[in-house]
Design a protein around this nucleic acid. Structure first.
Lengths: 135, 135
DNA sequence: ATGGACGGTATCCTTTTCGACACTATAGGC
DNA sequence: GCCTATAGTGTCGAAAAGGATACCGTCCAT
């Protein structure tokens, strides 16, 4: 959650959009929330395996910020080796429609295979074909 | 659209979430899209008035990035004083469910009035009340 | 002639973010 | 005695994002 963005959360309309973005902004928060929505509770290294490119340090940081935002809960078990569980809170769970909307748009519009991100061509353009023109 | 974020758009699942975020990330993109969704075509200074805290430079930058991402179109009229219209493309329009999901969550969960952003308390906790207990 | 509206650029600077790398502690297996 | 797994922390530096300020040219109204 970037402070400067939070600062502009003022009266102007459209603020709800920006403030919601400020919660899931941060390079890894979206994916983290997504995986927790798919799989429920996950441990630190389980998350790490699901998001291979995140570094340990960044994952920790993002998880801490999500915890501070009350979107997920962190449960430490006093065992060795250590065990820490991460799970969505009810508020985190309430983000499901948002995350799923993000995923749906990405699925429809972006090709994620290669090295870079590619926009898919738009499908079924909104042609209003004349009645007299054959399909 | 931040390049580093785009770089990580790799094969791992959850990528669609991140790549969609990369399109609307940038401190002002969410609001800009939101206003264009509400009001249709807007001119530069009309947008500026709707987002009072954005500087001219930043507004220009964000609009250029949105244009490059094919989410909005920029139409210059060769008149004086200059006139430039911004409108959603079809792809930009396709983000409507996403932006509206963001707005809905913000409306439900964040208080935007004062100087800072405040989480609203959760309402209607998921109590499973006994049949024998009166409401 | 002065100032404003319009839609920007150019320059400089600070803040924020992100990643690399090294380091920690403990228990169990070989 | 050494390696592994677990879940981190600390420090450093590069890069990106964002903000402040000044400037441009033309037309119109005062």
């Amino acid at each position: 959650m970037s402070r400067p963005r939070a600062k502009l959360t003022n009266k102007f309309p459209g603020c709800p959009v920006e403030s919601t973005l400020s919660f899931i902004d941060g390079k890894w928060k979206g994916v983290i929330l997504y995986h927790l929505m798919l799989e429920g509770t996950l441990r630190f290294n389980e998350l790490r395996r699901r998001v291979p490119s995140v570094t340990q340090r960044m994952l920790t940081k993002q998880l801490r910020e999500l915890e501070e935002a009350e979107l997920l809960s962190r449960t430490v078990f006093a065992v060795v080796p250590p065990r820490v569980d991460y799970a969505l809170t009810r508020r985190g769970e309430s983000l499901r429609p948002v995350i799923m909307a993000l995923k749906a748009w990405g699925d429809e519009n972006v090709l994620c295979d290669g090295e870079r991100m590619v926009l898919k061509p738009l499908e079924s353009p909104p042609v209003s074909r004349s009645k007299f023109e054959p399909a």
